[in-house]
Design a binder for these strands. Structure first.
Length: 567
RNA sequence: UGGGGUGUGGCCAAGCGGUUAAGGCAGCGGCUUUUGAUGCCGCCAUUCGGAGGUUCGAGUCCUCCCACCCCAGCCA
């Protein structure tokens, strides 16, 4: 039985009644990606649903590649999909399956249907077939080849298989009903000729089964009980059932459709994502701005955030548009509790603490996480504190104002995070009029306590030692699309691309402990956001990359109740 | 104008005829805070696409209407 702390979705309700009625005794589901692109957040919902169902009911979930169209499928995608599913934290039952494992069986069943008088080889070309199919409001008409002798179809199918027929000349069609109001029942194509090598079967086949003739039978072969797919397949269900009913399949799976995930400010269509990659709008399928699993991983989004997000989504038949902020919530939620803290100055401004000796070096102790949870004690780190430090340019203002009360301004105090209170005395500008150095004095005896004179600093600022810090580049990301609905209307989704979705910051100064950061840890750079070391060491402008260069991707910003000056 | 599906606050969504229509996200106030983060407290649908009807009682049942999504690939 499923967890009853949450209301059951309609699929769980169905499973419960199937179980009670004794219709099934073990739940078997499957995640059936076509290896024609990388997995995205929409697939994550399906993965969490299918693997989740199997887990909840003590059943199995298969990973099966639906590789029935060699023109679009590649092994690279197979490998990427496997990696993504595993990274998300799921393990399939048994071996990885492939539709292509069943090509032989499918072929036999095609012959069976021909012998039963329920399938025939049709010689209508694509255009003719469209004409014969009719329209949504008018019935189609029968193909002139519909009633050809069984033996003839059998022979012709053999020819098709052996490569003796050119592409487009013949198809194998199911004989159902050309007048059906459901267009997918108007003698659908079961096999088409494609003289294209397949990533697994090579050139063994010259014909490949169409989705409708393959999917349900694959489910039946594997003993899948609940075949969950998205809404657009609802009108295919009668056809799915027709094959199951008319073939000697070993089991009777059932198809259920749920609403696919749509996210605003995003596209979740493999075709469009591929276009972004192919046309160079992004740095590959795993560009951190992509809504792909690999893109989010590279950006530092934890797998558990994606799972929690997916689990929060309703499994229903409404096709809604989920707010990006809902995904972001689960990213921040996880990272806030589990990301180690560090300090990195994005736009360095040197501060000289003039009442400290030149060679002052003090090791300050800072917790790696602010809440030292008993189960989550990340320990401490040391922060070298010296006479010269960097703070962010934005944390110093020449003029004090109430708005800047939490920033460092001349004559005012600020607390250095995990350190002392300092007071700004004066500052130096360059020819361009930019502040390039601030001279300050340390307020003594303020480590872990307020100043003795009780003039408490209003703000806290992160910092890093000039001598004891490491250089890095930081890639700041904004949403890939500025258009909340890039898919809507008849404009091109490319028009919705945000030209400022990537901003590269160079010469950033990171706390020393970050020098050996790995791509699998996402940090909170305090007061700045969450960041993760880039696995590719730079993106887009790879000339900037060197193997030992430190590059961080911004995973997501901290929430902020404070509007920046000028904005 | 065929068939299939869906309509509950800005977004997602529970609700399966009977107290004042859950919850999450977003937003807005306030408190706490060595992250303007986190945390905590409070506010946020006289109303369930619309109109009729059944009923002592309807978001939940019936009728009609409206809107939106999917289907006419030898894609999946």
């Amino acid at each position: 039985m499923a967890d009853d702390s949450k209301p059951l979705n309609f699929i769980q309700q169905t499973i419960n009644s199937d179980l009670e009625a004794g219709l099934v005794d073990k739940v078997v589901t499957r995640f059936p990606p076509e290896p024609n692109g990388y997995l995205h957040i929409g697939h994550a919902k399906s993965i969490c649903l299918n693997f989740g169902l199997a887990e909840q009911y003590g059943g199995d979930c298969h990973l099966r590649f639906d590789d029935t169209n060699p023109e679009k499928e590649e092994d690279e995608y197979v490998q990427a999909i496997i990696e993504d599913v595993q990274w998300l934290g799921f393990q399939w039952s048994g071996e990885i399956r492939y539709a292509s494992d069943y090509f032989g069986q499918l072929y036999e069943w095609a012959q069976y249907l021909i012998r039963e008088g329920k399938a025939y080889v049709c010689e209508l070309n694509a255009e003719q077939m469209r004409e014969y199919r009719g329209t949504l409001t008018e019935p189609g008409k029968n193909s002139p080849f519909r009633d050809r002798p069984v033996e003839e179809s059998l022979t012709l199918l053999e020819y098709m298989k052996n490569g003796d027929v050119d592409e487009g000349l013949m198809t194998l069609r199911a004989k159902i009903d050309m007048a059906s109001p459901n267009v997918s029942l108007r003698d659908p194509v079961m096999y088409r000729i494609k003289k294209v090598p397949h990533h697994r079967t090579g050139d063994a086949w010259n014909i490949y089964p169409a989705y409708d003739f393959a999917h349900g039978q694959e489910d039946a072969i594997e003993g899948v009980t609940h075949s969950v797919c998205t809404l657009e397949f609802a009108s295919n269900r009668p056809l799915y059932n027709w094959f199951i009913e008319n073939l000697p399949v070993p089991s009777t799976p059932h198809q259920y459709e749920f609403g696919r995930l749509n996210l605003n400010y995003s596209v979740t269509s493999k075709r469009k994502l591929k276009q972004l990659v192919d046309e160079g709008h992004v740095d590959g399928w795993n560009d951190p701005r992509m809504p792909t699993i690999s893109g989010m991983r590279r950006r530092g989004v934890p797998a558990v955030s994606i799972r929690n997000f997916c689990d929060s989504l309703a499994v229903s038949k409404t096709d809604g548009m989920v707010d990006m902020s809902q995904l972001e919530h689960f990213i921040r939620d996880e990272l806030n509790t589990n990301a180690p803290r560090a300090m990195t100055v994005l736009r360095p401004l040197k501060v000289v603490i003039t009442n400290l000796p030149e060679d002052h070096l003090e090791q300050l102790i800072a917790p790696s996480h602010p809440t030292q949870h008993p189960n989550l004690d990340m320990g401490d780190r040391t922060l070298p504190f010296t006479r010269e430090i960097y703070i962010d340019q934005d944390d110093f203002k020449e003029e004090y104002s109430k708005k800047f009360k939490k920033k460092l301004t001349p004559g005012k105090r600020i607390r250095l995070r995990n350190g002392y209170v300092i007071e700004a005395d004066d500052y130096v500008k360059n020819e361009a009029g930019e502040v390039v150095q601030v001279n300050a004095s340390l307020v003594p005896d303020t480590l872990g306590k307020d100043p003795a004179d009780e003039i408490k600093p209003k703000g806290v600022v992160h910092w890093v030692s000039v001598q004891h810090s490491v250089d890095c580049d930081i890639y700041m990301y904004d949403r890939l699309f500025s258009d909340p609905l890039p898919d809507a209307g008849d404009k091109s989704f490319l028009d919705g691309i945000n030209p400022e979705s990537l901003q590269v910051l160079t010469g950033c100064k990171a706390e020393l402990s970050l020098a050996d950061a790995t791509e699998s840890t996402t940090y909170q750079f305090e007061r700045e956001g969450y960041f993760c070391r880039d696995s590719k060491n730079g993106c887009k402008d790879s000339q900037n990359s060197s193997p030992d260069k430190l590059v961080f991707n911004q995973t997501i910003a901290l929430r902020s109740a404070w509007a920046e000056a000028g904005s």
